[in-house]
């Protein structure tokens, strides 16, 4: 019995572990606070980023309008292509910006030698990355509010009920962990190799395509149904970021939360089946209580934890190769 009990961690071990997590979290917030100060002091860069985001919204809304004008709206779904692009652009304004800012900042920290100094003080690149990711999220969410919310207001696309706002929060949290994982994986490469700017861009571009940021995921359904016997969107939707962005589009477009499950009429008069009908996912609500939501959250979190582990491994290799700092 005694030996069985000795396998369990003692109270002191748990206490030390909890203290360690607490101090690491404090360090991440310290890095985040410093990063926010720096970001908002580079006013020209901030202006360019806001301008770039405006340009993105304008270009993609134009693309959506052109698509709709040529009769390109897709069957089953409650949104037209303008709505498709507005939500997609909003989504990627935040997560593309957050990933890009975080990875670039990590390269800057390496060039400045800060990364090396912090490592010699037991502050790991993962903590620096996480802190930078928090700061970038705050910055890009503010940019989003400045740019995309007015566009959504103009299209009358803000969610129609309070329950749907919970849905937005849910999808944001899923995506936040998922993109943290993507960011960590890309950053782990930048710890090992010196010039990774193009790699970063290519990686994010691929993610954008796979999650349906550029082309609707159901565009190829009939082709895959005929040739392979299944709908491609039914597979891609299990990818947490795809699930989030797709669910977000429904949330912004439907009249009520009930419409997501049972179908109905969208704000702009589209007749549609419910989300479960289209994707075959047994979703009953869009809150944290839904099983599918919990599953997606878990999936994202596990992916994020795995990426954290990869960064730690990459750090060790970088210490061996001497690529951790390159000034």
């Amino acid at each position: 019995m005694a030996s069985y009990l000795s396998r369990f961690p003692t109270f002191n071990t748990i206490q030390n572990y909890a203290y360690s997590i607490f101090t690491q979290a404090m360090l991440a917030f310290l890095v985040a606070w410093r990063s926010l100060k720096i970001d908002f002091r580079y006013k020209f860069q901030l202006g360019v980023e806001i301008g770039w985001s405006y340009l993105n919204v304008i270009v993609f809304v134009g693309l959506g309008a052109a698509w709709s004008a040529t009769g390109g709206d897709v069957q089953y779904v409650p949104y037209d292509m303008i709505s498709f692009f507005i939500v997609g652009t909003a989504f990627f304004t935040v997560f593309n910006g957050v990933t890009d800012t975080t990875v670039t900042a990590i390269q800057e920290e390496s060039q400045l030698g800060t990364m090396g100094f912090l490592i010699t003080n037991n502050v790991t690149p993962s903590i620096v990355l996480f802190g930078r990711y928090i700061a970038a999220t705050i910055k890009w969410t503010l940019v989003l509010i400045l740019i995309v919310v007015p566009a959504l207001l103009m299209r009358g696309m803000l969610p129609s009920s309070l329950e749907l706002y919970e849905g937005i929060l849910v999808t944001f949290v899923i995506s936040w962990f998922f993109f943290a994982g993507i960011t960590f994986l890309i950053a782990s490469v930048s710890l090992l190799f010196k010039k990774t700017t193009t790699f970063n861009k290519v990686s994010m571009y691929l993610v954008r395509v796979i999650v349906g940021g550029i082309v609707p995921i159901f565009s190829f359904d009939s082709a895959t149904q005929n040739s392979l016997g299944f709908k491609l969107s039914n597979i891609l939707i299990w990818f947490p970021a795809t699930f989030s962005i797709e669910l977000m589009r429904w949330i912004f477009t439907v009249n009520s939360s009930a419409s997501i499950t049972s179908g109905g009429i969208s704000k702009d008069g589209h007749s549609f089946s419910g989300f479960p009908e289209v994707y075959g996912i047994p979703i009953h609500s869009v809150g944290f209580g839904d099983f599918v939501i919990q599953f997606m959250l878990l999936l994202s979190f596990v992916f994020f934890a795995f990426s954290w582990f990869v960064v730690d491994r990459a750090t060790r290799i970088a210490r061996k190769w001497g690529t951790l700092e390159f000034y």
Binding site: Y42, L112, G113, T114, T120, E325, Y327
Partner: peptide, 16 residues
């Protein structure tokens, strides 16, 4: 790491 202090000329700072 708790017992060392390393001052390196490679350490630079955020200008802002």
């Amino acid at each position: 790491r708790k017992l060392i202090s390393f001052v390196s000329p490679g350490l630079d700072f955020h200008r802002k």
